[in-house]
Design a protein around this nucleic acid. Structure first.
Length: 274
DNA sequence: ACTTCTACCTGAGCGC
DNA sequence: TGCGCTCAGGTAGAAG
């Protein structure tokens, strides 16, 4: 569900939690826990600590505390992180609740593909989930030279290549299609065929695509909401994703949908050359 | 070591 | 209404 712009939107909307002191923690148990069970004992140990910042790398959030520990959160496909009054009724599929006095930071996740963990802030890069990530597409920028170097010898489809978080962290299935349309490159092109010129165009297109979505507070297809419950409006502005059969916004050719590695890909057969 | 496939889950939407 | 099918923004681990 959430890619970089959505996770960054969540990060920004968590600003009201910065400065709050953690009072307690709860996690759902009895057979209904997430695939990767949240570490309840470690979360409870955070009681008394104050939230100092919320950071993001790729699709991961890090809620820092002054205890030298951070809460690592990945939203999976349907994860929702919200700050609500403690008295508010819990939404369905709530898995983790972090008490913040009169408010609570809550993690809900219908499909349970997400992740909540506690890491030592100073050693966070050693965490298995973070260790494999490449540069963050927004914070670090997308370097066309690095992109080209990583694509070298890779027979994967360019669109599949973009989903590899070790190449660029933050691009997911929506924005891979979007960026390739923006760069006028066909998604089925093999990564190793990338040229310097195309890498430059693609790097710029990735940045433009993500920044634009972020300005629209992310893409809400169905589940995504920010920590204050608001939806993103970028769905209205998508160039190709979920637009099969509709005219290309550049050339009017009908957008095509296909499937690569089990995931939907959208492109314009005319202005995205092979 | 690389690439591709499958599993992990629930819920929404569609055709019948 | 309801049933069965397909699909969904992600990743890890197995299988090839």
């Amino acid at each position: 569900m959430p890619e970089l712009p959505e996770v960054e939107t969540v990060r920004r909307s968590l600003a009201p939690a910065v400065g709050a002191t953690i009072t307690d923690a709860w996690s759902r148990g009895v057979g209904l826990h997430m695939q990767r069970k949240p570490p309840l004992a470690a979360l409870k140990m955070l009681a008394g600590a104050t939230i100092t910042a919320v950071r993001r790398h790729g699709k991961y959030l890090l809620v820092d505390t002054d205890a030298g520990k951070s809460i690592l959160v990945h939203l999976g496909m349907t994860g929702r992180l919200r700050v609500v009054p403690s008295a508010q009724e819990r939404e369905a599929h709530t898995h983790v609740v972090i008490g913040l006095g009169a408010r609570q930071l809550r993690y809900a996740d219908a499909r349970r593909f997400g992740q909540v963990d506690v890491v030592e802030t100073a050693a966070e890069r050693a965490h298995a989930s973070l260790a494999v990530l490449g540069p963050d597409a927004l914070n670090d920028g997308v370097d066309p030279v690095a992109l080209l170097a990583r694509a070298k010898g890779k027979k994967a489809l360019l669109k599949t290549f973009l989903l590899d978080q070790s190449v660029v962290a933050g691009v997911g299935n929506i924005y891979a299609s979007e960026a390739l349309w923006r760069a006028k490159i066909r998604p089925s092109m093999r990564a190793h065929r990338l040229t310097a010129a195309k890498a430059t165009a693609l790097a710029a297109a990735i940045t433009e695509t993500l920044v634009r979505s972020l300005e629209n507070h992310g893409t809400t297809l169905r589940d995504f909401i920010a920590a204050d419950g608001s939806e993103g409006s970028n769905k209205e502005f998508l160039w190709v994703y979920d637009r099969d059969g509709l005219p290309c916004l550049r050339c009017k050719t009908l957008i095509k949908r296909t499937v690569h590695q089990g995931r939907a890909t959208y492109y314009c057969p005319t202005c995205q050359a092979a």
